[in-house]
């Protein structure tokens, strides 16, 4: 048996402990104690868990790739420092939590840089809600106001929050749907409010996104986050993932996204 100390950063705290607690239990670990805090970067969940040593890698892999997890760190409980493990979708790690780690290393610039700029995103979100669906000027402003390195993650976070909000506002009434039905009845009409799109099964092509003009490096991340936020609540408990297949900004004819769960 091993005891692990795990720290997770997520963009919002609602349901975080429940969702990650399920992952912990699914890997035969038990939750010994936890703490949920919030700061300008998002919601921090610290957990001490105990379980079989052979399941440790599986647990870390599942937490690291969980859709709610922006960044994640784990280590044996009581170790001097927690080993950072970074989800596949993140290019690098983050600085550890001061509460549980004695003295964090000074964060290297590239590590901090991949975090979304939560402060900028939080600042722009009320404007997105106010002007929805005419939100491109605000998204372009967000694009221009954050550092290059955090542009994609910031747009993705803005997309997730907007998508989750649109779902609650316009599509929450009714039953949970399967992925194909949720794409057809929720994602497609919601996305049509923002852009000209084509829909083929689990693929969505965005034809004229102003966020993806040649030379702009947002990489359709806003749409990816938007779809994950929009569909996430509709087909839970399964998780929705959006893969970016092509983007106009890199010379493709249109932006292409693939949705799966």
């Amino acid at each position: 048996m091993v005891e692990l100390e795990i720290q997770v950063l997520s963009d919002r705290r609602e349901g975080l402990l429940v969702e990650l607690g399920r992952v912990v239990v699914a890997n035969s670990f038990s939750l010994i104690r936890q703490r949920l805090t919030h700061d300008s970067r998002g919601a921090w969940l610290s957990m001490i868990v105990r379980g079989p040593a052979e399941q440790r890698l599986a647990l870390e892999e599942m937490l690291g790739t969980h859709s709610r997890v922006l960044s994640f760190e784990a280590g044996l409980f009581g170790e001097a420092a927690v080993i950072a493990a970074i989800p596949a979708k993140m290019a690098a790690g983050i600085s550890p939590l001061p509460e549980l780690v004695p003295e964090p290393e000074p964060p290297a610039a590239p590590l901090v840089a991949v975090m979304p700029d939560v402060a900028h995103v939080e600042h722009i979100l009320p404007k997105l809600a106010q002007d929805y669906p005419q939100i491109y000027p605000w998204l372009v402003a967000l694009e221009n106001s954050v550092d290059d390195a955090v542009r994609e993650s910031s747009l993705m976070l803005a997309g997730r929050r907007t998508g989750a909000w649109v779902y609650k506002r316009d599509y929450a009434l009714g039953a949970k749907l399967g992925l194909a039905d949720a794409i057809k009845r929720i994602a497609v009409p919601a996305l049509r409010a923002l852009a000209d799109i084509e829909h083929h099964h689990v693929h969505i092509h965005i034809l004229n996104s102003p966020l993806c003009a040649p030379g702009v490096r947002s990489g359709c991340k806003f749409y990816g986050g938007y779809l994950e936020g929009l569909l996430g609540a509709s087909i839970e408990p399964k998780k929705v993932f959006v893969r970016h297949l092509s983007c106009r900004s890199t010379g493709a004819a249109h932006c292409s996204l693939e949705i799966s769960h």
Binding site: D170, L173, G174, L177, R185
Partner: peptide, 10 residues
């Protein structure tokens, strides 16, 4: 129809 559609037709 009520539980599976969305929008005005729902």
């Amino acid at each position: 129809l009520a539980f599976n559609l969305r929008g005005r037709w729902q």
